[in-house]
Design a binder for these strands. Structure first.
Lengths: 160, 160
DNA sequence: GGCATCGTTTAGAATTGTTCTAAATCCTTG
DNA sequence: CAAGGATTTAGAACAATTCTAAACGATGCC
């Protein structure tokens, strides 16, 4: 049993476990993502899949991708095509995206943590910027500790 | 001199320093972003600005935002409206976005760093996922150290 | 001051990535 | 085999953003 067959088996298993059908389309989409590990876009995947299955439609590729993501077989990198947001806090800081409320909070990043983050890069990789986003829910204990009320940056524009 | 006037002065200074003109539109857009530090989208900014300048157009808001970003007065959060990318590496890892080539490389994250990252959140904030993206250029020394050749995850799908 | 020039704004069209829709097709099960 | 649901398909719809061309406005030069 070669690697491709193994992956197909794993795929089929996951799908049926979630009450979904293992279809050729899902198989092929999964396969092309595994074949070349280069973070392709939906369009690129569509092109590659089309090469061996010319009848497939873009919508199906999107469907398959969604299915694979929901089964935990692949991940999306640029999560959610949300509108770009703008932020007056110019200090290095992370964002906490509260998925329950949709709100975004600034989170301070200590200098030594930033150093550690840069240190994690292999030699030759020079990062001009770091984007760090947490996703989850914030609950609501201690509102005095969150954004705009005593934390997150020393306020480069003098607002508040 | 109040805070708004200060900010306008700072804005005017930055703009002229970059050979750009301080216009009312740029001023108002900047102002509404500072007023309410809540990471608004372009549409939201458009709505707020329209309240005090009903003739402004959406395109102008986009223009102004771009200008403010390029002057370093604000930052964009969801940088670049790029197509979503898909990734078969299911391990916790960061991405290095090489802006010269457009390529995305996986970068391993040691467990203790992840712990530190979670520790940075204020109490009550519960992060289900962390998204960490570096942007910069990779140069090309030591190709044997980068993605797909010995680093970045122990390969959950058995590819390569 | 008048005029050419260049930066800026505007409205609307165009583009891009993605999702929706409705019909066709495919499996599965009874 | 028929009924039912799941899946695929093509194309329309959508949302965020960018482009375009025309109008406008400020600035510099004589």
């Amino acid at each position: 049993m070669n690697s491709t067959e193994q992956n197909c088996a794993a795929l089929a298993e996951r799908l049926t476990a979630s009450g979904l059908r293992p279809t050729v389309q899902r198989e092929v989409v999964f396969k092309v993502i595994l074949e070349k590990r280069d973070h392709p876009t939906a369009d690129e995947i569509f092109a590659r899949v089309k090469a061996e299955m010319p009848t497939i439609s873009l919508a199906t590729v999107y469907n398959c991708l969604e299915t694979l993501v929901s089964c935990g077989l692949i991940r999306q990198v640029n999560l959610e095509r949300a509108p770009t947001r703008y932020c007056p806090n110019l200090h290095q800081h992370a964002h906490f995206h509260d998925e329950t409320t949709g709100q975004i909070h600034d989170v301070d990043l200590p200098a030594d943590l930033l150093t550690r983050l840069h240190a994690v890069l292999p030699p030759g990789f020079d990062a001009k910027s770091i984007e760090l986003t947490f996703r989850g829910s914030a609950g609501s204990p201690r509102p005095e500790l969150v954004e705009g009320r005593g934390r997150a940056g020393n306020n480069p524009h003098g607002t508040n």
